[in-house]
Simulated scan of single mutants.
Amino acid sequence: MPKLSVVIPCYFNEDNIPVTARELVANEANFPPEVSFEYVFVNDGSGDDTLGALQRAQATYPGKIRIVDLAANVGSYNAIVAGMAHATGDCLAVITADMQDPPELMVQMYKYWKQGFKLVIGNRQDREETGPSRWFAQTFHWLMKRLALKNIPDGGFDFVFFDRIVSEEVVALRERNSNVFYLMVWLGFPYVNIPYVRRKREIGKSRWTLSKKIKLLIDSLLAFSYFPVRAISAVGLGLGAVALIYGLYIILLKIVSPAEPAGWTTLMVVLLFVSAFQMVALGVIGEYVWRGLDAARQRPLYVVKQLHEPAAAPVSPAPRAV
């Protein structure tokens, strides 16, 4: 009997939990009868009553829900790794707690897994969201596909179904300041992707702020691409060539016309431009150095405050002999 573990990171999802748990359990009816389920909800240091909502859901669905309560907020990707580390299934899925991704898609993902695919990706072909969030997501994944991992599907993804082997490899990597979904692709297992339309959030407010999005973009680029460092080298070589040509020009001008006044404006523009480039270059190099230091310290990705194991499902009494 294959067992499916569904990992759900939670951060300020108090109002979502009853709906999420109900829809996930109802979706079990779409699977073959031999599949068993567990739902690993990870409370990522929420400041509301997310933990209380999870405990009530655990009591409502005995034997199905495991709660990993983290000591502090460590970010959704580290929370996902925590959930993967505590999952016991033969195959796993990651889905958000806001139900913007259709849980019924997991049935098709499961069929691909049974065919031997270690990784199945639900990629966002389109999204019902509008405004800056939509634009940023499209730009983010366009940059990642062209500058980092060229074999990721278009549209981005954070809804995945994968084999336990993939889970064990990702957990063992203990990658810091990275993107857990891109790590799954980076491992190299052949995958299949299923396009879908991401729903608009109906309950609660997203805590995925602009600063978190920018940090994710920087983390993902630096973790999977040498482009920033190579761009610095290319611009540096270009500036060096320009400086050489300008230096020869100044020497020639001095020889031809010794009384010609120095170009103050040109000199200041060049000085300011080069100085600005040097500061940007130091900043990019500093990002790499900081990530190296962060990895060298080997601090844990997360700390589990308490693990709430699933309550035992009620057992029907055996018929009494007459």
Rank of each mutant, 00 (worst) to 15 (best):
K150I: 00
Y11A: 02
V256D: 03
F31C: 12
L272K: 02
K200A: 01
V19Q: 06
I8C: 07
T130R: 12
Q138H: 02
C10Q: 09
V19E: 10
V7H: 10
G89L: 01
I250D: 06
L143K: 03
R201Q: 02
E287R: 02
R134Q: 07
E309G: 09
V303W: 00
W142F: 10
V270A: 15
A72N: 12
L237T: 11
Q100Y: 00
V42Y: 04
Y11D: 01
V289H: 08
V280F: 11
G236T: 15
E14T: 15
N179M: 03
K215E: 15
V197R: 08
W290F: 06
V160T: 15
R230K: 15
G45L: 02
K150W: 05
I95F: 06
R201K: 06
D90K: 00
T50W: 03
P258C: 11
D101I: 09
I165T: 14
Q306R: 14
K118M: 12
F117N: 02
L51F: 11
V120M: 07
T130S: 12
H86C: 06
S316R: 14
L183E: 11
V242R: 09
D158N: 04
I203M: 03
R299M: 06
V40W: 07
F162E: 08
A231T: 15
F37Q: 01
V322A: 03
N30R: 11
V7Y: 11
E38Y: 13
H86M: 07
S211A: 04
L51M: 11
A79W: 05
G240K: 07
V280R: 02
D126Q: 02
R124Y: 11
E169I: 00
R198A: 14
P132G: 09
L253D: 13
L272M: 11
N78A: 09
W186A: 11
A29H: 04
K305R: 04
L24S: 03
H86D: 10
C91D: 04
N43F: 01
R22D: 12
K118Q: 15
G286A: 11
V303P: 00
V120Y: 10
V289C: 08
V284W: 07
G204S: 06
Y182I: 01
V74S: 00
V25P: 10
T209G: 06
A26H: 00
E28T: 13
P103D: 02
G156N: 01
R124W: 10
G63V: 13
D154E: 05
R66Y: 08
M279L: 15
P258W: 08
V40Q: 01
M279T: 11
W113T: 12
S233M: 12
A26N: 06
A281S: 15
Y39H: 14
R66H: 07
